[in-house]
Structure formats: C-alpha cells, structure tokens
Design a binder for these strands. Structure first.
Length: 422
RNA sequence: GUGGGUGUAGUUCAAUGGCAGAGCACCGGAUUGUGGUUCCGGGCGUUGUGGGUUCGACUCCCAUCACCCACCCCA
C-alpha cells in the first residue's frame, strides 16, 4: 500500500457516514429550536488569535497546535478550538451591531497535535454553541440545557454534568494569590510541571495527577470561597436555574478549563464508559474574550462537544439512532430487449424519488434475486422480454413473496411501493 | 513528549525456528423466467517496513512505521 492516512485522522466511510449525518442534523435541529444559527469559519487562522485567547502557557498552544508559515512568512495555525474564530468573526463582521443578542453554533473539524488514543484524534469534529451579549445567568443555564437535553433525547443515560465557577478577572486574581501563598512552601515537594505552572496558572496545580502532588493539596483553598459577591450570586442563580429545569449537576471545584479565557461558569459533561477520554463536552463563560480579541466588552458563554466521543457513547449504549438506507426496489431484468427497454423506466422511478437498485452485470435471475436480498430491498421489479412486449411489469414483495402484474407506465408501480411502505 | 500491548488473506484469527492455513465475507456455478436454505468450485498473501542472527525466520534480535491502551491533555 503506497499511501496511508495521516496519524490521528480517519476516513468516515459510507458505513459510518449515515450516522454522522443523523447526529449532525439532530444537533442542528436542537440548536435551531433554541434560536441558534450556524456560522462557519475557516479551519485556519492567524496563530496569534489562539495564542492570545487560549493563553501562551496553555498546553493547546504550547504543544498541540499545528502551526505553519505561508509563502509570505505569515504565521497561521490550524484551529485547535472553535470559540476564538467565532469571536474573531463576530468582532470583524460587527455582529454586535445587528443585535445585542447573538446566538451562534458551529460544526467542523479541529486540529491538535496529540498522541492518538481512545476518543482522541488529531483531526476531530466538534459542535459548539456560543451565546454572545448578556451576562444573565439565564443564558449560562440555557447553553447547558441545550447540551444536556440533546444528549438525553439521543438516549444517553450515564451522563454527569459538573459545574464550577472560576470567578471574574478580579476575584480569580485574588484566588490565584491565595493559591500561591498556599503552595509556595510546598514547591520543593511538587513535581516539575507544578513548579512551572506556579507562576502563570497556579490553579492548574489543583488538577495535577501526580499522587504526591495530589496528597499535598488536601487543604488548598477552594475557588468558590474566593468568589466576590457578584460572582457568588451569579453562580447560585445558574445552579437554581438548572434545578428548576430538572437538570442534575454536581459542583466540582476541580474543574479548571484548559483555556485561559474562561470566567465565572465552567462546566463539563462526563460520560462514563469511554475510557480515559470521558469528557463529551465542555465550556463556560468568557466575559473578557471579545474585548481581548479587539471588540467591545461584551459578555458571552458557550461550549463545544466532540462528535467522535458522542458516537462512541451512543455505540456504547447500543442506541440505534440512524437506519442505513435500503432500496425501495431492486430491478431485475431478463433478456436484451428488456435491458435496453428498461432504462428510461428506471430513470423515471428514480426521478420520482424511489431508491431503485439495478446491476447490469448480473445476468441470471437467481443472481439478481440474491443481490436483491443482499441489499434488503423491499420489492423486486421484474421485467423480461415478454413483459416489454405485453407492456407490463411484475412487482414482487420480497418479504411476503406476493407478486402482481402491473402496467409498465411507472405510476402504478410507484403507488404500490409507496403504499407498501406504510 | 513518556510507558505498555499488538501488527499474517477484504475481515476475524491459526501456524515447536522447517511446505503460510481456517471461519466469515466476496465471486462463479448447480437446464439465463422467480430469491433467502443447501451443495460444488474459486486464495502464491511483499506475514506492516528495513536490517540482523541462522543451513533455514510469521516465529529470535535491532530499528522504524502504524494501530490499541494508559500517562499527559482535553472534545
């Protein structure tokens, strides 16, 4: 084999393709009913957009971004996430002038240079929701509700919603200070990663998995204790709204989103049964991002989810959410006269929306019937030379074996097949 | 980037260092006009790739690539 697919990527073959279509159209439907409209941005952007928004020190920027220089020396990156591009487009196209409430969703591939693993790829597909224009906790709850209701509608059961508040820029700074005070004396005992992160992002020390680090942070201050009054109130109302929508959640102060732009609400949807990569979706509020990208100070909240993991989860629960299309009919032809006489008729059936299979290479009646069975066609349309002469077709129901002779004009056969579908 | 496991036919898997095989799938046939069952026939594949050891390597060794799993990170 001469060429093979790049590492960490995959082909969506016809046998899987119909599932993707089903899940994507299902997402479009739920997003649409909440009033969200689709936005599509390029798969690459100026690299700096991601460096500034996600944070220079984030892993995504530091070691996972596909960067390249174009022929004129400009620095670009394949997008590692969807929010920054959407915000860039929002600011660049002055969408804030059109309305002070902007509801957007996107679907498309993202790219991260990472070691492939179960549920993790280098090119992966995300769906995402962004609400821009209000700090009202209602929207935090709405955005979370879209995801949770959708996943529930798809049939997923083992879902867990975890939420947290990382505070606004001022109280999150207070918290960082408190954390540094707590960790400073422990630094010699902490791992190298923790020491590196101490200055830039001390809260990352909270989710370090090294056992010795884990043990040392037992009595570390909690983020929630350092929220200012406004942030505390905001978080409380988000929780209230979730309760009144009957969306169960757990508060997890350990949720630290990897991207720097998050403020206040942060959440993650966990699905047990996917292995180590068990996060189906995650997101949060980003009240400072739009200004940082060059727009006005406008609050916003959003999330992104992974299609691959969603499909794995659906598979895991054996949820049959999409049916492979099977032919309405299989056209069986006998004799040369019939072969040529049938072509216009076949077109007419297809133009009327019927899915009709036909194989000119199969000659024997038996082979054609076998093929018809293999495709799971509901009907066989049998036309031989004698039918051509008589101006009739034989329509056979392959499930019941019933067969009837009909005039060769198309209309009646169509009618019968469509009726049979009921 | 680090660690562990695995690479043989389209696929799932066999094969003491000694002739590379089977199930499934696929194709053809059993009087070219009525199917699903059955029966018969159809397989030399760089044993992932490149080296090495050996009279001889799918088998042992080294490297490399890919996949799987985990760390990490997150979708």
């Amino acid at each position: 084999m001469k060429y093979s697919i790049p590492r960490g990527t995959y082909d969506i073959l016809p046998a899987e393709s119909y599932k993707w279509q089903a899940v994507i159209s299902s997402f479009r439907k739920i997003a649409g009913s909440f009033g969200y409209e689709e936005i599509t941005t390029p798969i690459f952007e100026v690299a700096e957009l991601f460096e500034r928004s996600s944070g220079e020190s984030s892993d995504v920027v530091q070691k996972e971004m596909y960067r390249f220089t174009d022929r004129k020396g400009r620095e670009f990156a394949l997008r590692p996430e969807g929010t920054a591009p959407v915000v860039r487009s929002y600011v660049e196209n002055h969408l804030d002038v059109l309305s002070n409430r902007t509801k957007l969703y996107y679907i498309g591939p993202m790219f991260r240079y990472d070691r492939p693993q179960a549920g993790r790829f280098r090119q992966f597909y995300q769906y995402g929701i962004e609400f821009i224009g209000s700090d009202n906790p209602y929207y935090d709850a709405e955005v979370i509700a879209i995801e949770m209701l959708w996943l529930k509608d798809l049939g997923l059961k083992n879902l867990r919603l975890e939420i947290n508040s990382v505070g606004c820029s001022s109280c999150s700074a207070d918290y960082d200070t408190a954390l540094r005070e707590f960790f400073r004396p422990l630094l010699p005992q902490l791992c190298a990663d923790c020491n590196n992160r101490f200055d830039k992002k001390p809260r990352r020390l909270l989710d370090c998995k090294v056992p010795s680090c884990k043990a040392l942070r037992g009595s570390a201050p909690s983020q929630l204790d350092y929220l200012d009054e406004a942030c505390k109130a905001h978080f409380a109302i988000v929780c209230e709204h979730l309760e009144s929508m009957n969306i169960p959640y757990t508060i997890n102060p350990g949720i630290v989103r990897g991207l720097d732009y998050y403020t206040n609400t942060a959440f993650e949807v966990i699905y047990e049964g996917l292995g180590a990569q068990n996060s189906l979706a995650g997101g949060g509020r980003y009240n400072g991002l739009i200004e940082q990208v060059g727009g006005k100070s406008i609050p916003a909240i959003g999330f992104a989810g992974g299609f691959e993991r969603l499909l794995l989860a659906l598979e895991h629960e054996k949820i049959n959410f999409a049916e492979h299309k099977t032919p309405d009919a299989y056209l069986i032809c006998l004799g040369d006269k019939a072969r040529s006489g049938v072509m216009a008729y076949l077109n007419a059936l297809r133009q009327n929306g019927l899915y009709v299979e036909y194989d000119p290479d199969k000659s024997s009646l038996k082979a054609q019937f076998k093929a018809a069975d293999a495709t799971n066609a509901r009907f066989a349309i049998i036309i031989g030379d004698s039918e051509i002469e008589a101006g009739t077709v034989n329509l056979k129901n392959l499930k019941t074996g019933e067969q009837q002779s009909l005039p060769l004009d198309g209309g009646e056969v169509l009618l019968h097949i469509v009726q049979g579908q009921v």
